[in-house]
């Protein structure tokens, strides 16, 4: 009889824990707004890009080395390399020591969590699952570029309005595909001055580049049916500019770029990326 009781308890436990449920007001979340108007395309693409997420933090002693590595790689890869710095985890928590400069975002936190980033600096290329030390970035970037099939170009345009950035995208397919794709669009900012730990030292006027900013548009649908070679798909989005308590724009738009990623819906891997400056 003891076995039966245990079995019933196990069954009850399974019943209780093995089912996710959402309330009526939790079923859907507004994640973006497509514009009805086409924003003019001003930058075209004719190459395969590679996307690097640099996981960093102001309290991370070794992170300046990774940033230096990235600066070293930038001229080698040119516009083919698109890098974003994600500040997340305990080493990014703002406090008195860094004058409460908070470079974290919800999106960055979720990416770091999804990839299980427990140590920094660390890199993830094209959102594949490998975590890569900064010394190995160059070989992995080269390897990724040689393996990637150049199957799509992302042409871009951007328009600035009061507290909004309007982004025009044109996806130009060079190969047919049965896959469904998702689009992510977000802002990164360069030249943010703040405090950074560097070994034993604390650098007061450290320059943070490629910093992921708030209000991203994440995983918006591109297609629900297969795409054909030669097909182009237009999408236009609006990104709200972050506003501080005084109603002033939180970002310096002269230092900001729009990054766009095209990912496979099922695997989440990046198949193409591009970027454009908001102000020339």
């Amino acid at each position: 009889m003891k076995t039966i009781k245990i079995s019933i308890l196990v069954l009850a436990a399974i019943l209780f824990f093995s089912c996710d449920e959402f309330k009526e007001d939790e079923l859907i979340t507004l994640v973006g707004r497509e514009l009805a108007q086409d924003i003019e395309i001003t930058k075209t693409q004719d190459f395969q890009a590679v996307y690097l997420e640099e996981h960093t933090g102001w309290g991370c002693n070794n992170c300046p080395r990774a940033a230096e590595k990235l600066e070293e790689l930038s001229p080698l890869f040119g516009e083919k390399l698109i890098a974003v710095a994600i500040h997340a985890g305990s080493l990014s928590e703002p406090n008195r020591s860094n004058r409460f400069l908070d470079l974290r975002t919800d999106y960055g936190n979720s990416i770091a969590q999804a990839f299980g980033i427990n140590a920094r600096p660390m890199g993830v290329i094209n959102r594949k699952n490998d975590l890569i030390q900064y010394n190995d970035w160059e070989s992995h970037l080269n390897n990724e570029l040689s393996l990637s099939q150049h199957s799509v170009n992302i042409n871009m345009g951007v328009k600035e309005e009061s507290n909004e950035i309007l982004v025009g995208l044109e996806f130009e397919f060079l190969q047919s595909s049965q896959d469904n794709f998702l689009i992510s669009v977000f802002v990164v900012e360069d030249n943010i001055i703040g405090i950074q730990r560097d070994g034993e030292d604390k650098v007061e006027d450290y320059v943070f580049n490629n910093v992921l900013r708030q209000n991203p548009l994440i995983n918006l649908p591109l297609n629900t049916e297969s795409v054909e070679q030669g097909q182009t798909i237009r999408k236009n989005y609006k990104i709200d500019i972050a506003i501080n308590e005084e109603g002033r724009q939180f970002w310096n738009l002269s230092n900001c770029r729009i990054i766009v990623l095209l990912t496979e819906k099922i695997s989440g891997k990046v198949v193409q990326a591009n970027q454009i400056k908001i102000r020339n």
Binding site: C19, F22, V31, L35, L220
Partner: peptide, 24 residues
């Protein structure tokens, strides 16, 4: 990720569905 797009005046609102990872 699962999305729906709903027309809303000049815009199309893009919503993301809360997808249950465990279905019992």
């Amino acid at each position: 990720t699962e999305n729906i797009v709903q027309p809303n005046g000049l815009y199309n609102d893009v919503y993301q569905l809360s997808v249950p990872a465990n279905v019992g």
